[in-house]
């Protein structure tokens, strides 16, 4: 009988588990900013009028950007390099370059990325924890009452994932009579129910990866949710799946910032438009989302809305309509 030795290992296993937990907890604090305020100014350093946010950021030498750390292709923290990678990151780099000058790589060294999840983006902006948020951040009127948006810099939407070579589904209405999978209780399912009432939505799982497994096994003919999530699956399984490319909802991704700083917003909108013109936007797309086999689309038109107008739709927010 070797019972006693088996029992003797348990405290060791428990100790290892505790150590692992401690190591995991400490790991999160490693990404402190290492940027010195007196970094060598590049030759092409732009100048801004005193008192603008751009001038203040330049003096500070650091741009704090909220982004997602868990969104493949857009903002994903690489566990090996500890760097955040994706299209949102590239957009932030383009903005940082416009503020600090120099190369994109130099601009990246001036950015401090802070993880923002969907629920904390507005509070982080309002409390000044971040200078801006580039985090698959959909522009909508409710949010416009709390923060301002530059952009959009990308238009996402709910799309359909099918097996490669499947041409029977060309739009959402083709889902009628077909088996479609999405995550249990998601808004994606409700959208399909609305647009294709005859589709069979009885198959649903807790995660999208199981839906994709069901698609691979032929249990369903399509998986539907936001295209950026679907693109991640295409990138992970090259050649197996394709996007129908007929989005039936519209999500305009914008850059969120503190309300009321129109000069800063105009500056970022100008920067975005410049990047559309000089190919920087296209390169940012091809280096990130494009790796999933997507061609770079036409960049979206920047929406220079008047900040008061959005809040004006709801007459109760008097403090913001004064301007």
């Amino acid at each position: 009988m070797n019972r006693p030795t088996t029992r003797g290992r348990w405290p060791l296993a428990a100790l290892l588990l505790i150590l692992a937990l401690i190591a995991g907890a400490c790991g999160g604090d490693d990404d402190e900013p290492t940027v010195g305020a007196n970094a060598e100014p590049p030759a092409t350093k732009p100048t801004f009028p005193q008192g603008t946010a751009m001038a203040a950021l330049q003096t500070k030498g650091k741009l704090t950007v909220g982004t997602k750390f868990d969104q493949p292709l857009f903002g994903l923290k690489n566990p090996v390099t500890n760097k955040v990678e994706g299209f949102d990151v590239e957009i932030a780099k383009i903005v940082a370059q416009a503020i600090f000058g120099g190369t994109l790589a130099e601009a990246e060294s001036k950015i401090e990325f802070v993880e923002t999840v969907s629920a904390n983006r507005e509070p982080f902006i309002q409390e000044g924890k971040v200078d801006m948020v580039v985090a698959t951040y959909t522009i909508n009127n409710a949010r416009k009452e709390r923060v301002d948006f530059a952009g959009p810099y990308y238009i996402a939407g709910q799309d359909i994932l099918v097996k490669s070579g499947d041409t029977s589904i060309k739009s959402v209405t083709d889902l009628n009579g077909k088996k479609v999978c999405s995550v249990t209780g998601s808004t994606s399912i409700n959208n399909v129910k609305e647009k294709a009432p005859q589709s069979d939505i009885s198959t649903s799982f807790g995660t999208y990866s199981l839906c994709v497994e069901a698609l691979a096994d032929g249990r369903v003919q399509a998986v539907t949710t936001d295209d950026i999530i679907l693109l991640g699956f295409i990138a992970d399984n090259p050649g197996k799946y394709q996007l129908v490319k007929a989005p039936f909802t519209t999500e305009n991704y914008g850059i969120g910032m503190k309300r009321g700083d129109d000069a800063f917003r105009t500056f970022i909108n100008d920067t975005l438009e410049k990047s559309y013109g000089n190919g920087a936007w296209k390169k940012a797309f091809e280096d990130t989302v494009g790796k999933s086999g997507q061609q770079a689309p036409q960049p979206p038109k920047v929406d220079r809305y008047t900040a008061g107008a959005a809040a004006g739709s709801s007459t109760t927010t008097t403090s913001t309509t004064v301007r």
């Binding site: 249990t184 009885s202 198959t203 649903s204």
Partner: peptide, 10 residues
């Protein structure tokens, strides 16, 4: 329910 069977809980 984890394998998409519409039982009581789901």
């Amino acid at each position: 329910s984890v394998i998409s069977v519409l039982e009581l809980s789901k």
